[in-house]
Amino acid sequence: MTIRPGLAHYRGALGANGLHHHHAVQVLISRGEPLIVGDAQGNEVECLAAVTPADIPHTIVRGVVDGEMLHAARESVYGSALEALVPEPHSAASWGQAGARLLELGVAGEWWRAGDRLNSPVAMPFRHPALVASMQLLPDLLAAGPVRLREVAAAAGISESRLGHLFAEQLGLPFRAYVRWLRLSRAVEFIARGSSLTEAAHLSGFSDSAHLNRVCHRSFGLAPTALTERIKFTVVE
């Protein structure tokens, strides 16, 4: 799995699971036989791709041996663009329709990096120097606890409102959501390297391991230890 602020991408087997939900937009794509997804009403749809909005109960009824799964922060421009593809948020059939639309856009290879195909770039070729400086400051600030936009802006020599605008405009993610995903990606990285859940939570700036568990489960539907036991991670800035 590749994880970076606002996005987590996995390529491999997609197994069946129970009804669950998480605070991230989910994209499933099969690279072989169709998969089957189901909604809370018991409706199922067979499809090659599906887009499920954030916080909507869903299940993989039949998985595939080779597929892709993307979790995009709802607050990001990418997440918003993906949700806009779904006409009926609670309908499995609608998720399949949105998946078909995504495939029509010509996604292939590292499609999840190509946000421009959804008219919502997740990265910009140019980043404002103050934004770059802020991004460089954040990793060292995480372990200290709360990270405030006002303090980061002052350190970067820019106004708070301007820096907040730059995060949304050039990274596609509000400042608070960016920090939350950055904490989560750091915690997962520490766990994957052998740190305990408590150590990873402390080093990433979570109040405790329970807080880390809640944020991870809300974002991905799984505890951080469950993720690292099953998946090899690559953390991208």
Results as ranks from 00 to 15, higher is better:
L102K: 12
A168W: 07
R4C: 01
L105H: 00
Y178T: 01
H9I: 05
A54H: 13
A72G: 05
H22Y: 05
P174K: 01
W181N: 08
L82W: 07
E237P: 03
Q97Y: 01
R218M: 08
A50C: 00
A100M: 10
A168E: 15
M1V: 12
I60Q: 06
A144Q: 15
G15W: 13
P125T: 11
L137K: 04
A130F: 12
L35T: 07
L171Q: 10
L171V: 12
A24T: 13
G15Y: 13
P146D: 13
G18V: 07
A156S: 09
A153G: 06
L70D: 12
G145W: 12
A108F: 11
R180H: 07
P121V: 08
G79N: 09
F206S: 08
R101P: 03
M124P: 03
G67N: 03
V215A: 11
R127T: 15
G205N: 09
G164E: 09
V147H: 02
S185H: 04
H58G: 10
A155K: 12
G194R: 10
A108K: 14
L222V: 04
G109W: 04
L28Q: 04
R214V: 13
G115W: 04
Q136P: 10
K232L: 11
W181R: 07
R127E: 15
L105D: 05
L203M: 15
H90P: 02
G96E: 14
H128Q: 13
R180N: 02
R148K: 14
V188A: 05
A143D: 03
A130Y: 02
A201R: 00
A210W: 10
Q170E: 15
T198R: 06
V122H: 01
S209K: 13
S219H: 13
A192N: 04
S195D: 14
G164I: 00
L85W: 02
L142N: 06
H23C: 00
A72P: 06
G221M: 02
A143K: 09
R62H: 04
G42H: 09
M1F: 10
A155R: 14
G164A: 05
V27G: 04
T228L: 10
Y10F: 14
V51E: 08
L173M: 00
R150G: 04
G172E: 03
N213C: 14
S91W: 00
V61K: 13
S159F: 05
R176F: 06
W112D: 06
L48I: 07
L212R: 05
